[in-house]
Structures are given as structure tokens and as C-alpha cells.
Design a protein around this nucleic acid. Sequence first.
DNA 1: CTGACATCCTGACGGC
DNA 2: TGCCGTCAGGATGTCA
Length: 269
Amino acid sequence: MPELPEVETVANGVHERTHGQTITDVHLRDNPQTFKTPPTEIANTLTGSRIDRVHRVGKTIVADLTLPKKKTAQLLVHLGMTGRLLVSTPETEVPPHTHAILSLSGGKELRFVDARRFGRLSVTRESYTGPGREPLTIPLEDFITLFRGRKTPIKAALLNQSLLHGVGNIYADEALFHAGIKPRRHAGGLTRDELTRLRAALIKVLKHAIKLGGSSVSDYVDADGVAGFFQLHHRVYSRTGEPCRTCSTPIERIVIGGRSTHFCPTCQR
DNA sequence: CTGACATCCTGACGGC
DNA sequence: TGCCGTCAGGATGTCA
């Protein structure tokens, strides 16, 4: 499940392989819910546009475009659960569930593949800023203010994209473990010290994952795009019943906001 | 403002 | 072996 580190890895990989190239042809599968913008508008905007830069905002991949008449636009791709953005040669067999194929002037194709169809693709004329703040760059004081007065569990708050965007289920659990904070704690009840630790833990686990992803960019973008997503060795995520790597207490699993949540009842307070 | 819950969708996995 | 039910999850929407 792509979260901030995976999305950043994919964005970087796609950038390296496509920037400066022009989109010469666009094929979209007739699948309305994948496209937040009407498919005809997407095709009209993309065809003839040049890809200047591909980057990440929250969990969204953003391609900055220059249109033929020098106007600008952005292509937005959200990978959802199973979305993949691949740079392939035209000869490469088109995988099942391919919803969009953009032909590039460099000779390759940018393909959007998404089995479960939670992913979304759209174009916009405005500069996309995302629903919340960037976890990697938010100043400490802003981070602390974000959670002030909120009774919601800190785990749920971390998943709320309108607060911090880019954090998903895996890194929320991992960051809470590293910060030593129980996921059910009220966000607004955390001390300044705890929030300081949480922000540091979040940045640490995200950067660590980005580093690992960076070494396997090609797994995400060139190949089938799946390898690499589950390479990390997590401390708590998906380790229910297994011994905590710090204290050997079995990791517990609970549900918060409909999301499975994993934590060490001893190390997290 | 909250949270609990359903919805979308299909591959993976466990049980029988 | 093979079928079938269940689960997972991000974003969104409904409802209490």
C-alpha cells in the first residue's frame, strides 16, 4: 500500500525517465471512477503537453506540464491501494487493469495500472497543494498545534490527510512505536515532549523508507511495480502476536477508525 | 467536531 | 486439490 515513501520513490523514478518529454498520444480505458476529470478533458490537456517535473505532494504524484500554447497544468495520480505507474516500452505486454497509457516522445509509455481501482487520475490548471501539511517539513510548533484540542486517537489523527498528508497505516503504526506512544491516546492529550518525539519518529521512519525505496526505484517503475513495497522490516505493522523486537512482548492488534492498528503494550505508553 | 460504519474493488489467504 | 468466504485498505460519504 503506497504511502509517502513509496509515492516519492515512484515520483522520482518517473521523473528521471520522463521529464522533458512530450506526451504524443493518450489512451484511457472506459472506467469513469478512475478519472476525477472527464476523460476527454484529460486527453485534451495531456496530448501535446511536455512533462517538466514529476514530484510528490502527500500521497499524490504530480506531473508539472507545459501545454502547447505555453499554458501550464498538472497531472495528478493517486495510487490508492494497488495503483502502479510504470514506464514501459510499447512492446512490453500491457498488464491487466491498465487504465491509462500515455505515449511519450522518448519512445516509451507511461502506464497507470490499478487492479483494485482505488487509485485516481485527474488534471488540474491550478497548482496542487494537497489536503494537509507535509510531514517531512512541518515545523515543530505547527506540528504541535495540529493536534491541539483533538479528542480523536492519535492514530486516527495521523491518518487524517487534512492534518498531515502522506502518512498511511503502516508508517502511523511504526512512528507511534518509535515514539513510545499508545495509538489510542487522545491526540490533544499528548504532551509537548511526546509530540516532539512523535514528529522526530515520523520523519525518521519516512526518511528511512525513502532511502530503501531509492535503492529499488527500478522495481517500482520499470518492472511490474510491486517488488519493493513490502521490503521494509517493520517493528509492529502486521506483526500481531509476534514478539516485540525491543522487549519480546507479543504485538497487539486493535482497530481504530476501521484500520488495523499494531502496537507493543509494553514499549508504548 | 467526532466517530462508527459502509462503500468501492479484487487479489491473497485460510479453512474445510 | 479446489472452492468459497473473509479480509485488507485510502478516501469519501452517511448517519448518529
